[in-house]
Design a protein around this nucleic acid. Structure first.
Lengths: 242, 242
DNA sequence: CGGTACATTGAGGCAAGTCAAGTTGAGTGG
DNA sequence: CCACTCAACTTGACTTGCCTCAATGTACCG
């Protein structure tokens, strides 16, 4: 178990803003270990007050809320570099659950050290707030999409956002990005039924825009996909990595 | 223009967590003035990088995103005590616009002092992150509602949340809370058409659950409204006031 | 007293939901 | 190596909640 944040491969990506040596030093003391979560494991539970917070290192997860009647709304997808458990850290309780969709490796922090971060590392505290504001931004965009767009636009939006994020993580190979989710996950994320989501994916595939099969997404017409999803094409701006 | 945060009437509400004298002292130096916004004024614009941040003191506003085709998604309602402009302060750019629905009075802060807050007031920085996490929570709940619920549940959810928030602000009088928005605002918030929203409000009124007329909301069956909106009845937990 | 803004109501159409029946592929075990 | 199971994906047929269009009502205002 390597607690060497200095060689963390994620930090080398352009996606993540560089940090000072002193901050890196602090992060080493903040990090208390690594967690390996198997596929299907629940990492954080809605309503629970976890003593641990995480940054995803590898693998993919899903954030969701469950309704009384069993239905589910996916509120986000966890990719490497994402911070998990901020609500728990700051408000004492998670408002959604987080589950490992694939096997995951996560960097573990203690909630009890959280305050120390704010006290002694203002830049890191700022970064944390930055991440919180980003989450808010992402959710706001999801709300716009689900609230205002029709089926094809919703699916296109989700696929294009996946494509952008995974490309920024340099997980793209031969034009394919890994996308190990189920259609049901996408359906629950965009507020469509599974059947309609499936038919919409078929339409996108037959239109030659994008193909999502065998846990991988291939975008054939990037600009067209972005247009359908009402997203500005382009890459994602740099952001902090906790 | 009174820059005396010590006598700020909002602080006396139970809704807002008390702060230390030293923090209050800092807030006085952080506050640079007050802004009066007339009805209909745009306080912050989507995509703009404002040099000012605000806390609403009185009046009500609306947060929204505009789509290329002119449609609008309301991402939140600004009530007294709400912090406005966090995204701008931390990411440099607003992701949604904020408009004054009624005349408003706002506490003004300079973005350039923002960093000073993180450096010298870790508790206030923590509180700010807390607020950001709350925004995230609220948006997550809105996403669940718009993504999974039918018309009546969406409208009931929105009305009950208004009722809870306004009650916590002690703006309730004779069982009525002020609600100076238009039906179109509610429609754009819950992702329904104006016509359908209107018909749904009529149904709620005729069922004797809640009546929203003349800029005021009267909830006749509180528990029933909460049930319809899939909300836990009860009051809102305390939160920081910046 | 026409103009404007918002609320209300009816009629008809369609996007998306539900139901139901396969198909496919991976795993498992006899 | 084939039969069986199970989870995920497909596809077709039917239904409906919500949308759009279009009028009308109502209050306020210059």
């Amino acid at each position: 178990m390597a607690i060497d944040c200095g060689t963390c491969p994620l930090r080398e990506l352009e996606l993540f803003a560089p940090i000072k040596a002193e901050e890196l030093e602090f992060m080493k003391s903040f990090k208390t270990g690594e967690l390996r979560a198997e596929q299907g494991t629940e990492i954080l539970a809605e309503g629970a007050s976890s003593t641990q917070l995480y940054t995803a290192l590898s693998g993919m997860g899903i954030r969701y809320k469950t309704m009384p009647d069993g239905r589910r709304q996916v509120v986000g997808f966890v990719l490497p570099g994402d911070f998990v458990g901020l609500q728990s850290g700051v408000m004492g309780e998670m408002q959604h659950s987080v589950e490992a969709t694939t096997a995951m490796k996560l960097c573990v922090f203690n909630r009890s050290d959280f305050w120390r971060l704010f006290e002694s590392q203002p830049q890191r505290a700022f970064d944390l707030t930055h991440l919180a504001a980003r989450e808010e931004q992402l959710l706001g965009e999801a709300l716009v999409t689900v609230g205002q767009m029709n089926g094809i636009a919703r699916v296109a939006w989700a696929l294009y956002r996946f494509y952008q994020r995974l490309k920024a993580l340099e997980l793209i190979e031969n034009g394919r990005v890994p996308l190990p989710y189920r259609q049901q996950d996408l359906a629950d994320a965009v507020g469509l039924s599974l059947v309609h989501t499936n038919k919409t994916l078929t339409r996108l595939r037959e239109a030659g825009v994008a193909t999502w099969q065998d846990d991988a997404l291939v975008v054939h017409k990037e600009v067209e996909l972005a247009r359908l999803g009402n997203v500005e094409p382009g890459s994602i701006s740099a952001r902090p990595l906790i």
